[in-house]
Design a protein around this nucleic acid. Structure first.
Lengths: 218, 218
DNA sequence: CACGTTAGTGTAATTTTGACACGAAGATAG
DNA sequence: CTATCTTCGTGTCAAAATTACACTAACGTG
């Protein structure tokens, strides 16, 4: 911006609206799921959409994303990562809207009762089985998934999908669900243990089989 | 955006201006350089700034970036990569401005005579020796450099810094300048030749020493 | 034709990655 | 109480990728 021809250039054209959309994922019933809000009014009434909303004058974009996630979905988001900007002139039929998209992960033990204060309804949908999405939100979800998968293989981001305490088998399952590829058990365990990000606890998860050691984040 | 409480939410608050800024880099005299435009008016009159400008109603952001780069700096940009969004409420003293930042590379044989049609003056500055920058453009340049370095090690992006025909020694020099670390000559050559991105030409670059094979992109 | 300068090349050591199978521990049912 | 079922937890070896390393070749110049 800012190096424009004259001081009033800012006003030569109408300003677009600026909004954030948040693609927040979790694991539910062994599938990767994304949080969607049901639209109560036109356009796209009855369709589902990513949580999000318009930027306010006194906040920056990430604050906007965090606020909207909280207001619409009752979710106290952990880390938000900006992964794209959507700016096609006709992406919103009412008005010109630029959307800055954020990616978030929610650990599977904190799936709130979906008490979206603002939105009509909020639900988790398996990404393999999405309903009709409003606007270009299908495209945004696809971009979010691509971003998630590409960082999942290179970072510790998947720990954000885990509850506070978990077994290595569950962590590996999360990895396999997100990347859609199976991992070797021994290699996987060696890798994550050497990373130093996990701490062994004293406790074991029990079941009709040999108990599994429970770990937590360092 | 879009899943807001009522249909007029868009207008509850004034819309911010939306702009693009472009950090375009090249190699000059063995140093990495970024293109800056001298500001002709307040605020920050006399300071230098990244090329960029406001989004028009009929274009998307990447088109805006391409257009501004052309108008202000006379540069026909190659590939533009979006790497960040800057949204601090007070980043422009006049008005609320959201800036979407793009990264570009220019091959060193196409440094146009800087005929920025719009801007007062346009010059390349070595990134190690930047002047006072307007707005938060120092921060944007730092973010662009970080993005450039992180992709340089993992992609073929550095070929965009090369002229049409170049020697492997010059390509390696570009790599070393951008990453700030020396590479082993034999390993570097083996790697880029095996990548299949380069094609040997018949020609040699001559000098007071053994001639060097000239390559070009496939 | 001797010297200075940069180009060009291969191999061995090390590290990293990937493949692979079986005994251990507890729950349950007969 | 013992047999069975299920999941847990573990180490080694081969292959591949990466890194380290040094000398001769080719040309220009004086």
């Amino acid at each position: 911006m800012s190096t424009h021809e004259d001081g009033s250039f800012t006003y030569r054209y109408p300003h677009p609206a600026v909004a954030t959309d948040i693609a927040i994922f979790t694991l539910r019933e062994g599938r990767l799921a994304v949080l969607l809000i049901e639209r109560g009014e036109e356009p796209f009434q009855g369709d589902w959409a990513l949580p999000g909303g318009f930027l306010r004058p006194d906040e920056d974009l990430i604050s906007c994303a965090r606020r909207e996630l909280c207001e619409e979905a009752g979710v106290e988001a952990p880390l938000l990562r900006q992964f794209g900007v959507f700016s096609a002139p006709d992406r919103d039929p009412r008005d010109r809207v630029i959307s800055v998209a954020y990616l978030a992960l929610l650990s599977s033990d904190r799936l709130k009762p979906q008490a979206g204060s603002d939105a009509a309804d909020a639900r988790w949908f398996a990404v393999a089985d999405l309903p009709a999405l409003a606007f270009d939100h299908r495209q945004i979800v696809e971009a979010a998934l691509a971003a998630l998968r590409s960082v999942a293989e290179a970072t510790d981001i998947l720990l954000d999908l885990m509850p506070a305490r978990f077994t290595l088998t569950r962590l590996q399952a999360a990895y396999e669900i997100v990347t859609s590829q199976v991992a070797d058990k021994r290699n996987f365990r060696a890798r994550v243990l050497e990373s130093g990000l996990l701490q062994e606890t004293e406790d074991m998860e029990r079941g009709p089989h040999r108990p599994a050691r429970i770990y937590r984040r360092v």
